[in-house]
Simulated assay, not measured.
Amino acid sequence: MAQSLDDILTADAELPLSGDLKVVMAAWLDHLIVERGQSTATREAYERDARQFLAFLKLHLGHPPCLADLERLDAKTIRLFLANRRKAGVTSRSLARTLSALRTLFRWLEREEAVKNRAVMQVATPKIPHSIPKPLTVQGAASLVGREGGDAEEWITARDTAVMLLLYGAGLRISEALSLTPRTAPIEGRDIMHVTGKGGKQRLVPALAIVSDAIGRYMRLCPYPLEPDKPLFRGARGGPLSPRLIQLAMEKLRYELQLPDTATPHALRHSFATHLLSAGADLRQIQELLGHASLSTTQVYTEVDRARLLAVYDQAHPRAAQP
């Protein structure tokens, strides 16, 4: 194997596949959007995962793979592919998603009576390290979303403040905040947002008055026309605002306010959930607000709150430092 997997993926704009597999793969990708209602981002991720796997098969077999090759595929070859990706530095979380994509593909192939091979079901999902979200303190979050001035134009400062308030004040993901339009944003007396989250799932999220006021101020200052169904938040040249610009704004504020490196846009969403839980909010309610499909995803915040309480206990209890 003189040529590496990354060489193939880089060199071939369109991965060489046999005619039958090329047609089937195109139909599967359409199925993800039309029948399963997956988001464009999920479809692109699954396509990338399948492309990497098929590139590996081309390298492993020595010829462009076909449906018959998928029929003969064994679990050992799939494990070899995953080991190859891990050696390239791919994380367990990404490998787990790749395996999920392949399982989705092979289930669909069986349903369509194109290929029946359950070898991929025999491969164990890589263990994902358990990590606890790192929220900001109440004071840290307030200092970020309440920051005024700076050397940016007034409308840009107002824009960044509005976005950060949506993350901390409503618990939105940054992609959800940037997908809002003037029609869906909490303005003109609307105190509820219709938010489209992961997998195209919609939920209703209440908006605090301070969030609505910040959005209204940004809209009044924005120098570009804001059409009802176009992106609400704009970049300096009038195009849709890039998440990277909010990340950069956070990095600058983090430095100015001497906050930890964990103070990221997503940390504001973590802070929203953790601070609600600390104030006595019900876990089910937080699950609905965050748009989590499973309560087990939301339960991680109970660990955050417990860890925070233990840290306070260790620092404050008069006998904590004694053996």
Rank of each mutant, 00 (worst) to 15 (best):
Y313Q: 07
L67F: 09
T125L: 04
P318Q: 10
E288Y: 00
R306E: 03
L102Q: 02
S100T: 14
L276K: 00
P225M: 06
R269I: 09
L144T: 01
A281S: 10
D305M: 10
A267F: 02
P228A: 07
M219L: 04
K116Q: 15
K252M: 14
A50Q: 06
L277C: 01
R159Y: 11
L57S: 03
L70T: 10
W28G: 03
L73K: 05
L221S: 09
R93S: 11
Y301W: 07
A26H: 12
K127Y: 04
G200M: 01
L109M: 09
Q139W: 01
Q299I: 02
K76I: 13
R36Y: 04
F53E: 02
K22Q: 15
G146N: 10
L310M: 15
G239W: 05
R111Q: 15
R244C: 07
I33W: 01
A13D: 14
R79T: 10
L180G: 00
G200W: 01
L54E: 09
L259E: 04
A185I: 01
I128A: 07
D282K: 00
Q287H: 03
A141Q: 02
L248Q: 09
T42Q: 05
Y301P: 03
G238H: 08
T157K: 03
G239V: 14
D30F: 04
R237T: 11
E154Q: 13
L253I: 12
T297I: 00
I174K: 02
S18C: 11
L204H: 01
E188I: 04
A207G: 06
F81Q: 09
T181S: 11
G189C: 05
R103I: 14
T157W: 01
A45V: 10
G216V: 03
T42N: 07
M164C: 12
